[in-house]
């Protein structure tokens, strides 16, 4: 869903005259949402801009994505960076399981702090991030 939200945003910005490029790790969702330019990283969700603690991987992906702003000239093109997460694709079978439980969190309007201390930090500052 996050991926389709990005497609909606990119299409709007582009219509208003700003070039965009979207990273994606969900090729099918991006193909359906059809943003102007996309760069595909075949990693499990949660690693769109690279592997954890791998600055070179993160740099290479970010650089390739930004390069797509200039190199992609076909509207809707999805450039495949040809990266592999691991030697075997076992993680893909897990991602395609259809018998799982609902892994989403409950939906309400309470801020979902990563750590309880974050709430205290936010209350102690005038910078909510929303008005900057």
């Amino acid at each position: 869903m996050c991926h389709q939200t990005v497609s909606l945003i990119a299409r709007h910005l582009e219509t208003a005259g700003t070039p965009t490029v979207c990273l994606t790790s969900a090729r099918d969702i991006t193909a359906a949402g059809n943003p102007p330019r996309a760069v595909f990283v075949d990693y499990p969700l949660g690693h769109t801009s690279g592997r954890p603690f791998d600055p070179e991987d993160q740099y290479d992906i970010t650089r390739a994505a930004l390069a797509g702003l200039e190199t992609i000239d076909e509207p809707g093109d999805i450039l495949d960076l040809g990266r592999r997460w691991s030697d075997d694709d076992g993680w893909k079978a897990d991602a395609m399981r259809t018998d799982g439980e609902d892994t989403r969190s409950a939906r309400d309007t309470t801020p979902q702090w990563q750590y309880p201390e974050d709430r205290i930090a936010a209350e102690g500052t005038t910078n909510s991030g929303e008005t900057t």
Binding site: D108, Q112, Q114, N127, G129
Partner: peptide
């Protein structure tokens, strides 16, 4: 979000953090 900012909620939160 950055430390010092408000976390997002999960019911169609359309707010933005800078």
């Amino acid at each position: 979000y950055a430390l010092g900012q408000t976390a997002f909620h999960y019911k169609d939160d359309t707010s933005v953090r800078a």
